[in-house]
C-alpha cells in the first residue's frame, strides 16, 4: 500500500523532480547558474512561452492544436507598434487618429483575439481539422504582418511601451508579473469554472459532452479566441522588450509552446493535463536552454538535446498512464 502511494507521488511530481535535478546539476556545473540575475533572466525569457502555452494548453485539452500562435504574436506586436507610432490616418477624410499606449495595447490584444476567433469559427463551423485551420492561419497572419509592416521593423516606441517588457515592479520583472497573473487566472478557469469543466469534458469524450447538452462549438470558439488573445499579449511583450516590432517575430514559437504543454504532461488527445504542468514544462525548456548556453554547448547540439527531452517526456508519460 505504501509503495503504491510512493510510486503515485513519484509520478505526480515527476516534472518537479526533473526540474530540481536539473537545477542541482546545473548549479554544480556552472557558477553563473544559481545567481539572482540569471534566475530572473530565465524567468523573463520563459514568460512569453508560458503565456502562449497557457492558451495552447486549453486548446490541446479540448483535443485540438494551434499552430498559428507564433504568427498571431507577430501580427499583434506589429499592430500595437503601428498604432502607437503612426496612429491611424485616413487621407481621404483628412482624419488622423492617434492612440494612447492603452489604446494600442487593446488594439494588439483584440487583433490576436479576432484571429483566434477566426480559427475557432473555421474549425467549428466548417469542421476544418484544427491542424489544418491553424496551419492556414500561420501563413495568413504572417502574411498580414508583412503587409502591415511592409517587411520592415517598426522601432522607437517610447519608454512607457518599453516598461512592459523590460521594467521591474516590486523587484520582479514586468513580464513575470503578467505571466503569473495569466497563469493564476487560467488555473482558476480550469479548476473552478463551468467553462473549464466543459473544456476537459469535450477533450475527454466529445460525444458524451454533446449528449450532456454542452455547447461544443461555442466552447471551442472561446478557447481558440483565448489562445489568440494570449498570443497577442505575448506579441506585445516581445515588441516591448526589443523596442521594435519585427515582421519575423515569434517564428517557431508554436513548437516551443507545444513542447512545453507536452512535457508538462498534457495529453495531445485531449481531456487530461493541467496549467501548472505546462508551467513546469516551460520551466524545463527554459532552464535547459539557459543551462546549455552556460555550459557552452553548441547551438546545434542544443536543438538535438531539446528534441530528445521532448521524446523522453512523452515516453515517460505513456509509461505512467499504463501504470495507472
Amino acid at each position: 500500500m505504501n509503495t503504491v502511494t510512493l510510486k503515485q507521488n513519484l509520478i505526480k511530481f515527476q516534472s518537479i523532480i526533473a526540474l530540481a535535478a536539473m537545477c542541482i546539476a546545473l548549479s554544480l556545473l556552472s557558477d553563473r547558474f544559481l545567481t539572482p540575475e540569471n534566475t530572473w533572466n530565465v524567468m523573463r525569457q520563459i514568460s512569453v512561452n508560458v503565456i502562449i502555452s497557457v492558451g495552447m494548453t486549453l486548446v490541446i485539452l479540448t483535443g485540438g492544436i494551434d499552430l498559428s500562435v507564433g504568427s498571431i504574436l507577430a501580427l499583434a506586436g506589429a499592430v500595437t507598434a503601428g498604432m502607437l507610432k503612426f496612429g491611424a490616418e485616413f487621407t481621404d477624410a483628412n482624419l488622423y487618429i492617434g492612440f494612447t499606449l492603452l489604446g494600442a495595447l487593446i488594439g494588439g490584444t483584440l487583433t490576436g483575439t479576432l484571429l483566434g476567433w477566426f480559427n475557432g469559427f473555421t474549425i467549428t463551423r466548417f469542421k476544418v481539422p484544427p491542424f489544418v485551420a491553424t496551419l492556414a492561419m500561420l501563413t495568413i497572419a504572417r502574411g498580414l504582418t508583412m503587409l502591415w509592416t511592409g517587411g520592415f521593423p517598426i522601432t522607437g516606441l517610447g519608454d512607457n511601451m518599453a516598461f512592459i517588457g523590460t521594467g521591474w515592479l516590486l523587484g520582479i520583472p514586468m513580464p513575470v508579473w503578467i505571466s503569473a497573473i495569466i497563469v493564476l487566472a487560467a488555473v482558476v478557469l480550469t479548476n473552478q469554472t463551468m467553462l473549464g469543466r466543459h473544456i476537459y469534458a469535450i477533450g475527454g469524450n466529445e460525444t458524451a459532452a454533446r449528449l450532456s447538452g454542452l455547447k461544443i462549438k461555442r466552447i471551442k470558439t472561446i478557447v481558440y479566441s483565448i489562445a489568440g488573445a494570449l498570443a497577442g499579449i505575448g506579441g506585445i511583450i516581445v515588441t516591448s522588450r526589443l523596442d521594435s516590432a519585427q515582421p519575423n517575430a515569434g517564428f517557431g514559437f508554436e513548437l516551443d509552446s507545444i513542447a512545453a504543454v507536452v512535457i508538462g504532461g498534457t495529453s495531445l488527445s485531449g481531456g487530461k493535463g493541467t496549467i501548472m504542468g505546462t508551467v513546469q514544462g516551460a520551466l524545463i525548456i527554459g532552464i535547459l536552454n539557459n543551462g546549455l548556453v552556460l555550459l557552452n554547448v553548441s547551438p546545434f547540439w542544443q536543438q538535438v538535446i531539446k528534441g530528445f527531452v521532448i521524446l523522453l517526456a512523452v515516453v515517460i508519460e505513456k509509461f505512467n498512464s499504463k501504470e495507472e
Partner: peptide
C-alpha cells in the same frame, strides 16, 4: 462512448448535465 468521460471522476460525471444548478 456516449455516456461518460471515462478519465473523469464520478462526481464530475454526475454533475455534467446539471452544472448550472451547482454553480
Amino acid at each position: 462512448l456516449q455516456g461518460l468521460v471515462l478519465n473523469m471522476s464520478v462526481a464530475k460525471n454526475t454533475s455534467m448535465a446539471s452544472l448550472e444548478q451547482i454553480s
